[in-house]
């Protein structure tokens, strides 16, 4: 079955991203397909490579990047939400006159249409948020 997931909260403050990760991993290991993971609201904060959690804590950002690499996941950060919250790839940084980008490996930035498309193309959409 084809799943998509929406994540509406950032890492560490709320458990949403953790639950979404465990759900997605279980779905993939059980042989399901994941069409897209869409990060919205503060969820875009899951996609910054500048996060440096302490050694004894889980690295939520890296965990997503690694899962994306292993399963060729499509991790999409909403562009409007990302702009508001200072998450940028090289193109976005340039377009907005910023001197740095911070997007983590495996993530890309795109529009809200990607969420709608995920709803259309997937058999199930599961949302994790506050």
């Amino acid at each position: 079955m084809k799943f998509s997931v929406m994540i509406s909260e950032g890492p560490y403050t709320h458990q949403a991203s953790d639950t979404a990760y465990h759900f997605t991993k279980a779905a993939l290991e059980d042989g399901h397909e994941c069409f897209r993971i869409f990060f919205y609201h503060d969820g875009v904060n899951n996609g910054t490579r500048l996060a440096s959690p302490p050694q004894d804590d889980r690295n939520i950002v890296n965990r997503w990047s690694e899962l994306a690499k292993e399963y060729k996941l499509d991790l999409v950060l909403c562009i409007a939400a990302a702009q508001r919250r200072g998450i940028a790839d090289a193109d976005e940084a340039k377009r907005n006159g910023k001197n740095a980008d911070n997007i983590a490996p495996g993530f890309r930035i795109s529009g809200l249409g990607q969420l709608i498309e995920a709803g259309i193309q997937s058999d199930r959409l599961v949302t994790f948020g506050d």
Partner: peptide, 11 residues
């Protein structure tokens, strides 16, 4: 904002 974008997809 999602509703407005989604309206273009004719669902």
């Amino acid at each position: 904002e999602v509703v407005l974008i989604g309206a273009a997809f004719e669902q």
